[in-house]
Structures are given as C-alpha cells and as structure tokens.
Amino acid sequence: MNDYTFAYLDEQTKRMIRRAILKGVAIPGYQVPFASREMPMPYGWGTGGVQVTAACLTPEDVLKVIDQGADDTTNAVSIRKFFQRTAGVAVTEATVEASLIQTRHRIPEAPLTEAQILVYQVPIPEPLRFLEPREVETRRMHALEDYGLMHVKLYEDIARHGEIATAYAYPVKVEGRYVMDPSPIPKFDNPKLSDSPALQLFGAGREQRIYALPPYTRVVSLDFDDHPFVASKADHACDLCGAGDTYLDEVIIDDAGGRMFVCSDTDHCGSRRRAGHVGRLGVPGKEVA
C-alpha cells in the first residue's frame, strides 16, 4: 500500500467529476463543465484524461495508457506510473487485456469490447472555438444547434484545397444533435467512434470540460454529399509488420530522404510481428522479445 488515497484525488473531487461524467453520458456529445483540479503534471499533459481516469478506476482495473498509439512514450509512461503508484492498479500494454485505456490522439487498432472504457485526453474540447472565440456564443450555438459556421469552414477547405483538408480533430455530429470535437485523433480513427461497444469518455483539464459517447452511439463525421468524408491514411503498408490497414507514422531514417512507415499503434504492430508478419524493413523474429 502507499500513502496516497486511492487514485490520488480526494473523495469530494471524485464525486464532482463522477457527477459530470454521468451527465455527459446522459447527454452524448454535450460538454459538461467541471471544476478541474491542479494535477502533479502540467496542463497539456493529459490532466483532463487523468482526472477522468482517476474518477473511474477501481482496484480491479487493468490500465493501459497510450500516447499517439505508443505505450512507451514519455506521456504514456509517466501517466501509467502515476496510477501504478497512486492506485496500485495492474497495467498492461496489450489492448485486449486492458479494462480502462487512457489515450492521447489515437483509438487502438484492435477492436474494443463492452468490458472496456476509453478515456481521451482533450486539449480544446470546443469544436467551434477557432471559428468563434467567445464561450457565450459557442454555448448558444450548441443550444440552438446552429452549426452552419462549421460547414462554412469545411466548405472553405474545399474551395481552397479542393478537398476537406482537416486531417485530425475532424468534427463529428453525435446522435444527430451535438457537434463534437473527437480530440486530435487522425480522421482515420473517426469511423471507430461510432457504434463502439466500449464507453468513450473525454476529459479536457485546462478547459474544464468532460463529455462522453455511450456505447453504440451514432457518430457521423461532418461532410457534404459531393465531398463525402474519407478516413484517409498514408498510402503504404507498415514497414515492420506489413499491415496495410493501420494508421501509420512516417519516420525519417537518414539524411538522404530515406523514410519508413510504421504502425502508430505499437501494441498492434508488436503482436502482428510476434505472430510472424514481416514488413518491408522488418526482420523476422528478432526485433520483439
């Protein structure tokens, strides 16, 4: 045992966050204000997601934390260690073993299940914020379902670039009502938001908002009839595991223009390589212990 109360936050704070989560679940896509706390990490490092995770964790949970799909980057490692120390929960890097997954900017490639909760770290929860800076106005726009401005923005993309150029944080409409920012996930992941068996919770610490997508909620990426939404990705296969259907990171490997594409989801890539899949630059059976 350690000297922290279970999952770090005091009970009063957890009750306040839990009430906000429940209202978020009852009103899918609506951003519930909450009294975000100072956490022992800077804003921008996932304090919103950490507070939602702390309010949801039970001692029986198995926690996975990913940052851009990877389990082994600084942000993911520090948050995972934080909860190991303050909640004593089991942790894993395997998506299939986790009961609660905190994520920054990705949805795991492996399909989620009804037994899982996915917690997103959100920097700017308000999808209309860069179009209308005033909170009073954006709140009224949500109340009146006045989302014309968002379509103007997507239209201007088409007018300028010939296509909708928004590649991440691509706005969605939830159950035909609220326009929601899915956090800066690549638009490749947007289809996975809809009809997911897992509960999805979103926490924005600095902006003090929590919102939610209950399981099996209809989530539609905004588009136009003549410019339909496309969940795009780099036109390559993973150079390590050979997967052609995963979201890829581009890695510069020398100063002569050499590059490789690898799965952003390290757990998915690793399990494929363990299963014997080898990509263009992969070495069979050597790189994964």
Binding site: F6, K14, R18, C56, T58, P59, E114, L199, P214, P215
Partner: peptide, 19 residues
Amino acid sequence: EAPTQSARAFRAVLNALAR
C-alpha cells in the same frame, strides 16, 4: 472504506447509465 467502495459503486452506476 470510502475510496474503493465508492469507486466500485460509481463504476456500477456508470455502466448502468451508459447501458
């Protein structure tokens, strides 16, 4: 044991409301 009991209770309420 409020921290753990309330955590388990909340997860049950959350699951009930989410499903």
